[in-house]
């Protein structure tokens, strides 16, 4: 198993309040907060792009680790909102980071993309060397595409996160990984080429409420540790009510589930990395502490990863 060396994040500059969204969807700011936990989100301003956010997040991550860009052997870039069909952002992000002649792989997976990237990096880092996982999303143009859906427009934010995975050393040893996909629900959350985002919110919540706790329990059982022994849970920041539901199903205090959705909204694949960067900056985990990541998103793709601080 490989190690996580650190995290980074980049957020766009434009703060978008619930009041601004309210004017688009005909709901009150209080309604938005009650159904999602979101107070405001960040959207790209003119000149800010998915690629620029990805590079900024990667640079932030590298600045916090002892690994230089020249040591990176592989880069994985997750995004559900890439601005064109091909090439995806991975090769361009690599070039802008000055990474020459290394494989750069796109992961077009929403919400769970970063978790899938971290899991793949865990397998691939021993072969390719230090692996940079980046997730970057600019979903704001799609959420304001007509016809505007209230449940979509109020939910999503833009942002990017990054994580560096090293084959032999780092801050957290990856202990267990559980990944799964089920394409029979593909129509319930999708973004066609012309947009807008189509979401059957009830189906998504119903499935996520089952599958996230189950994936978490699977990695805990394999490691033979009780959920109560986990220092903190870092989940895809989908919706505050979903985070609370997962905590309740696992009969854990809700405070164990880090949340920053109030400030950034749902940034899809980037959210778990942005959450990790912020959480560990605020409070580094004590040596030996377990940290559990989990995500669920369109596809459906979902999973969990259990790590232990070195």
């Amino acid at each position: 198993m490989a190690w996580i060396c650190g995290f980074g994040a980049a957020l766009p500059s434009r703060l978008v309040s619930n009041a601004e969204i309210s004017a688009l969807i005909g709901k009150t700011p209080e309604w938005i907060q009650s159904v999602s936990g979101i107070q405001h989100r960040r959207w790209v301003a003119s000149g800010e792009t998915l690629l620029e956010l990805a590079v900024r997040a990667a640079e932030d991550c590298l600045s916090k680790t002892a690994v230089s860009a020249s040591e990176i052997g592989l880069i994985l870039v997750a995004s559900a909102s890439a601005p064109r069909r091909f090439p995806g952002p991975a090769a361009v992000v690599a070039a802008q980071l000055g990474l020459q002649e290394i494989p750069a792989i796109d992961l077009p997976i929403a919400s769970a993309g970063a978790l899938f990237g971290m899991a793949l990096a865990n397998e691939l880092a021993p072969r390719f060397g230090p692996t940079l996982v980046v997730a970057s999303e600019v979903l704001s143009p799609f959420v304001v595409a007509e016809p505007i859906e209230a449940g979509v427009a109020m939910l999503f934010g833009d942002g990017a996160g990054a994580c560096l995975i090293h084959p032999t050393s780092g801050l957290f040893k990856i202990c267990q990984v559980q990944l799964a996909s089920d394409g029979s629900f593909a129509e319930d959350l999708r973004l066609e080429f012309q947009g807008p985002i189509q979401m059957n919110g009830r189906a998504v919540i119903l499935q996520a409420s089952r599958k996230i706790p189950r994936a978490i329990q699977q990695v805990l059982d394999r490691q033979a540790i009780p959920a109560s022994q986990v220092d903190r849970f870092l989940l895809h920041q989908a919706n505050q009510n979903l985070l609370d539901r997962v905590a309740d199903v696992l009969t854990l205090p809700r405070e164990k589930f880090f949340s920053n959705i109030a400030h950034y909204g749902n940034t899809s694949s980037a959210s778990v990395l942005i959450a990790a960067a912020e959480s560990f900056q605020q409070q580094p985990p004590p040596s030996g502490a377990y940290v559990c990541f989990a995500a669920f998103g369109a596809g459906f793709h979902w999973g969990a990863m259990l790590c232990q601080a070195g």
Binding site: R202, I205, L206, Q207, R245
Partner: peptide, 23 residues
């Protein structure tokens, strides 16, 4: 609401002694 739905499904499983598969 959407978030009461999973709670209702869990309560139905408990009350009627069944396991409702994800499918």
């Amino acid at each position: 609401d959407s978030f009461a739905l999973p709670e209702m499904v869990s309560a139905l499983e408990q009350a009627f002694g069944i396991t409702i598969p994800d499918s």
